[in-house]
Structures are given as C-alpha cells and as structure tokens.
C-alpha cells in the first residue's frame, strides 16, 4: 500500500525562480533563505519518496477567470512549465503519475470533494519553485508528481477548515492506493504578504510564527480562521496558508517536525519552510 512519509511546506515566490536561474545561492540577500534547504534535501535522501503530491495555487498561467475551479487535480503523464509573462525562465517538464491521479480523483469525489480533472495542465511558479528547491535535479530523477491546485485568485476562496478536510480526504485516498509507493505531500505558498492596494508590503511575523508552530502541534486551531481573518492577519495573499493546511490534513500519523526556517523578507513575503515526518 502507498504510505505518506511526510509533508513539506515552502513559500513559492517567483523571485526565487529567478534567483535559482541566476545561481544566487551565496548572495547576501538570498543566502539566509537558500541555506535552509539542504537540510530538507537530506531528509528527502533519507525517506526517498516516489511521488510528490503538490498542493499549490495557480497565478494566472493554467486558469483564467473564464473557468476558475476551486480545486483541480492533474491527471497527466507530464506537466509543462510555460512562460508566465514576466521573465522567469521556463524550466523542464515534470513527470506525472496518471494512474495514481485517477485513483485519488475517484476516492476524493467519493469522499464528496468534487474536483476538476485536468489531462493537460501547465504549472507555474507555485508548483515549480518548490519542486526546484527540494529536487534541484528533478529532471534526472524518477520523482513523479500529482498537482492539486486550489483557487486563491478569486473570492470566494475555500476556507481553512474546508482545505484541512480536503487534506484529510487526500490522506485517506493516498493510503488506499494498492501500490507500494512512498508519497510526500507539499503545501506551498505563504506566509504573510500583500501585493495589492495601499496595504502592499504588509507582513505579520508574529502571526506567521504562530502558524508555523500550530501547523505542527495543533493544526485544527488554524481551521477556525475565516478567509477574511487571513486577509486581515496575513495580507491579501496570506490566504495561501490554506495549502499548508491541506498538506497537514493529509498527515494522519504521528507528526514530528524535522526542520524549519522562517526568513523576512523574500520579495514581499515572510518565507517559511517546514519538514514534517509522518510516522505510522
């Protein structure tokens, strides 16, 4: 049977993609951020997952306002990265696992999460930056992916409680897969930031640090926030915390924090990283 070995969270700011392309790992601005990732990669070397289920939000590459799904899952053999318009270089495609995708879709819909299914899906920085941070040479590895996209572009955005429940259902769906696979679940985005309006540049360190602690020890405490609360406390784009909650929902075993980092600022954002073990 498939087993969830753990969860990873990371911010997915597009500027990180530019910094990776420019190999700015030792640059004084970037070093405190990039220096946190080798430990996450050591953990991945230890647990050796076969598949990454990547929970992220599209920022206007694959989806437009003509059709805006609340939850959409990829079911393709390959996911392409494409030009996002502002100059971060396009990178190599990611391998999919369509058989696993369809199993998850079957189970999730039976569990009352009525996903949009995508046999073609371009993945933007919300997906590609975390993959590059955790598997810098992903194109040469066997790591396969299942993208799960959550709407944060247009309100109504799904609530933290709903996303946590989605994670719970995702966890059950993964663990009912008959193949012996090791799966890691990624929750990407956040933490506090706001790009738009006179409130642009809003960051809330205290709230972010509280979230990073609670997501490990008491994630249900975070499900009591509304989306409006998250906008107020974490900024307009701070709603991306819901992807972290969906990831955490999928970890139903004994969860132990193996590594974490928080750094301000990367671009306009409080950047967070967590590595969580999920023991049976």
């Amino acid at each position: 049977m498939a087993r969830i070995v753990g969860g990873l969270t990371t911010s997915h700011i597009p500027a990180i993609g530019g910094a990776i392309a420019g190999k700015m790992f030792e640059d004084p601005y970037w070093k405190p951020f990039f220096d946190a990732y080798p430990k996450a990669r050591e953990w991945l070397d230890e647990v050796r997952p076969d598949v990454a289920v990547v929970i992220y939000n599209d920022h206007g590459l694959n989806f437009f306002l003509d059709k805006m799904p609340t939850f959409a899952m990829g079911a393709a053999a390959e996911y392409r990265n494409e030009d996002e318009g502002w100059g971060i270089p396009t990178i190599a495609p990611f391998k999919g696992d369509p058989r696993l995708s369809w199993h998850l879709i079957d189970r999730l819909v039976k569990d009352e999460f009525d996903l949009v299914t995508c046999q073609e899906m371009a993945v933007d920085h919300g997906f590609t930056v975390p993959m590059q941070l955790f598997w810098p040479n992903y194109a040469e590895l066997d790591i396969r992916t299942v993208p799960l996209c959550v709407n944060t572009v247009q309100h109504p955005v799904p609530t933290p409680a709903r996303c946590f429940k989605l994670g719970r259902a995702l966890g059950r769906a993964i663990e009912s897969y008959p193949e012996d696979l090791k799966v890691v679940v990624l929750g990407t985005g956040g933490l506090s930031h706001q790009l738009d309006g006179q409130r642009a540049g809003f960051i809330n360190k205290e709230f972010d640090l509280m979230c990073m602690e609670k997501i490990v020890s008491d994630p249900e405490a975070l499900t009591h926030y509304s989306i409006h609360d998250l906008v107020r406390l974490a900024g307009a784009q701070g709603t991306e915390l819901i992807m972290w909650l969906a990831m955490r929902g999928a970890l139903t075993g004994t969860v132990t924090k193996r590594h974490g980092n928080y750094h301000i600022p990367i671009s306009n954002t409080g950047a967070g990283l967590l590595v969580l073990d999920n023991a049976a």
Partner: peptide, 15 residues
C-alpha cells in the same frame, strides 16, 4: 463580503 468589515487599503477580488 459586502457585509464583512472592510480591510483598509485592500480590495478583495470577488465576483
């Protein structure tokens, strides 16, 4: 959302 308390300097992108 019209009934929710506005957040200064923020336009929620809704329907």
């Amino acid at each position: 959302r019209a009934a929710e308390e506005p957040i200064p300097g923020t336009v929620l992108f809704d329907g």
